[in-house]
């Protein structure tokens, strides 16, 4: 998994490339905690290259959402692959998260 972050006018753009699973979810968690320390108010997560996620990764997503909701911040996901979307659907996560088809659509919200 590769995680890259970029500051943009609306907040922080985070892109994940690869898998988030039990063996590496802590790397994702650390990257996110770093953003919280920087008091970021909006996270835009590019999921276009996220090709696998297990419950370990879903846990981190839920933690981010809870945290952002608690601080009045925003957490928006976009460009999710169908196999990942299906896992979000099964878990009931599709209704918890703001998921957009494209980066443009996410940035407008």
């Amino acid at each position: 998994m590769k995680i890259s972050t970029k500051s943009i006018a609306q907040g922080t753009l985070v892109a994940i490339d690869g898998r988030i699973d039990t063996t590496n979810y802590n790397e994702f968690e650390q990257a996110v905690n770093q953003l919280f320390e920087e008091k970021v108010t909006a996270i835009y997560l590019d999921c276009s290259k996220l090709n696998y996620i297990s419950s370990s990764g879903l846990r981190v997503f839920l933690t981010i959402q809870k945290k952002m909701m608690g601080t009045g911040g925003k957490f928006l996901l976009f460009a999710m692959q169908p196999t990942i979307k299906e896992i979000f659907d099964i878990s009931g996560f599709s209704t918890i998260f703001n998921i957009y088809d494209t980066e443009e659509a996410a940035l407008q919200n």
């Binding site: 297990s54 419950s55 879903l58 846990r59 839920l62 809870k66 909701m69 099964i90 878990s91 009931g92």
Partner: peptide, 22 residues
């Protein structure tokens, strides 16, 4: 309970549920 809003969703407990669903 997958219909709970984010605030009330417990962290975890999804693994076995996913197995049964898939």
């Amino acid at each position: 309970d997958i219909d709970l809003p984010a605030e009330e969703r417990p962290i975890g407990g999804l693994g076995i549920f996913l197995i049964r669903k898939i």
